[in-house]
Design a binder for these strands. Structure first.
Lengths: 215, 215
DNA sequence: TGACACATACCAACTGGTCGGTATGATTCA
DNA sequence: TGAATCATACCGACCAGTTGGTATGTGTCA
């Protein structure tokens, strides 16, 4: 995958442009409704370039999921919530961070792999696995903080960190669907508020620590 | 939408068969990857019949969402959880019911409108609205029980019943996506367990009322 | 007779994918 | 040094099959 050729500065190669186009167009239209031609048009490259870099549309889907995983993991790795010293505060700050990310056009705040796996889970095992890897890897980055918080608050014996980390992702994925259905992301923010309250009650037993939902 | 014509007993008309085919095929492949031909083949009718009953594929999508809304609302209206006399118990029994429904092939346990809106929220306002109507109507059936429980447990002032009902649907929709990604519904059951615990803590403040998650 | 419920045949546009070709830079070796 | 060779990146015409959709015909029944 290394850059073999030196590129003119400011110029990105066709593969990178196609991947960026895939992230944009698939999030807007879904994988099935995205044609190879549409991807090429968005990327400003020809069909020849497409099939030079990807042996099929399916393999583009797999590469897009991996690219998504790469870019999002960098986004989260450098996010400020990691600076919190208390593990529970860190997890709650993560939820706040996700809530902040819920601002902007729907296609730009929703999850590529969640969208893709919904359509492809039966038709393409390769895409399904790539999407699962992306979701699971991200959930895994939460697991340690959750486990540490459980230990610190003495609830380690009744909390499965992995299950809770994946539940967090489920809430977010579901929030995206509700937002799409309503054509408005505000409902998603209500769901993350519920999720945050769940964490607060689960660890501290305090239901009224923050303002109630709605607002 | 009423049956205008009397049919030979045991015979269902092309429209009904196409709707049933839509529910099956779209849940397996997604809306975009479902062709009119595939729908006709599954229903055992011709293309002429398809376009006699639906003016376009998009209108079939709308009708499918409405049909889904009709059949699911009947399923839930006659479900046994309504027999519980305590409103909170009723809500918890609803979650248990949803958990029981998580048994079987993935395509048969997931939500048609959740799948469809994911792909169509930008390309078809008509489908988006039909899917929103289905989800919102179902959530509304939960709202009264949640409000009654909040009143009874003295937490009415900090619980928005509508928000909580929609959050319930978000958790379920997200659970479906995780299940599809992992190719296994067991992760979805873990999410409904978390949701149930959230309700228990929210209303009774008791986090350890039932066994912890995992299993 | 005529309205309805389909069937058959068909169409233009588009689908994913192939193919022969070219431009360019790296490598080899006389 | 420089000609020959090779690999990569990309182009764009082309293909067979499929797409959503239409036009027209036929059988049935009130």
């Amino acid at each position: 995958m290394g850059e073999v050729h030196s590129k003119t500065p400011g110029q990105v190669d066709a593969r990178t442009r196609l991947l960026a186009a895939a992230l944009k167009v698939i999030r807007e239209r879904g994988y099935g409704a995205t044609s190879v031609d549409a991807l090429c048009a968005e990327a400003g490259v020809t069909k020849g370039a497409f099939f030079h870099h990807f042996k099929s549309k399916e393999m583009l889907g797999v590469a897009a999921a991996q690219h998504w995983s790469d870019t999002t993991s960098e986004l989260f790795a450098t996010a400020p919530y990691h600076n919190e010293r208390d593990p529970l505060t860190r997890v709650l700050a993560y939820i706040d961070f996700r809530t902040e990310l819920l601002d902007g056009p729907l296609a730009e705040i929703t999850c590529l792999v969640g969208t893709m796996v919904q359509e492809s889970y039966q038709s393409s095992e390769a895409i399904r696995k790539a999407c699962d890897a992306s979701i699971s890897a991200h959930a895994a980055t939460l697991e340690d903080d959750i486990a540490a918080a459980a230990k610190q608050y003495g609830t380690a014996n009744c909390i499965d960190a992995r299950s809770l980390a994946l539940h967090t992702q489920a809430v977010l994925q579901g929030a995206f669907i509700l937002a799409k259905a309503k054509g408005d992301a505000s409902i998603a923010r209500e769901s993350t508020a519920h999720l945050k309250r769940y964490f607060q009650m689960l660890f501290t037993g305090d239901a009224q620590q923050r303002e109630p939902n709605g607002g």
